[in-house]
Amino acid sequence: MSGVIPLSWSLALSATLFVIGVVGVLVRRNALVIFMSIELMLNAANLAFVAFGRSLQSLDGQIFVFFVMTVAAAEVAVGLAIIVNLFRLRETVFVDEVNLLKG
């Protein structure tokens, strides 16, 4: 299969995206940026699903991506509502300024 991108390349890209997402969640303090990083992680998984689906010659992987995209959309709806409500109450989206609960 000449001209086809090898599985290892797709997987390397997917792993890179996933690690960027994880690092983004851990180091950034802006709730919106953290949220974007989480979406990046989900899309890294999508890429892995598609790549595996292609190499295994099975449609399952391609179909799962639709489920994941739906879930991600629902997550955006809920997550942005929570963050907007946070901004209304406190006028901040930085998670280290949100620290009433501790112990």
Binding site: L11, S14, F18, G21, V22, V25, A31, I34, F35, I38, M41, L42, A44, A45, A48, F49, A51, F52, S55, L56, D60, G61, F64, V68, V71, E75, V78, G79, I82, I83, N85, L86, L89, R90, V95, V98, N99, L100, L101
Partner: peptide, 30 residues
């Protein structure tokens, strides 16, 4: 304020965990 803060923390960490879970599923599928 407390309720909103709890929701934010639960949501961010829960979604983060979902990312791990999903990537794990993708690799096991492969």
């Amino acid at each position: 304020l407390e309720s909103n803060e709890a929701a934010l923390k639960y949501f961010l960490l829960g979604a983060f965990a979902s990312g791990f879970l999903l990537y794990g599923i993708a690799l096991l599928y492969g």
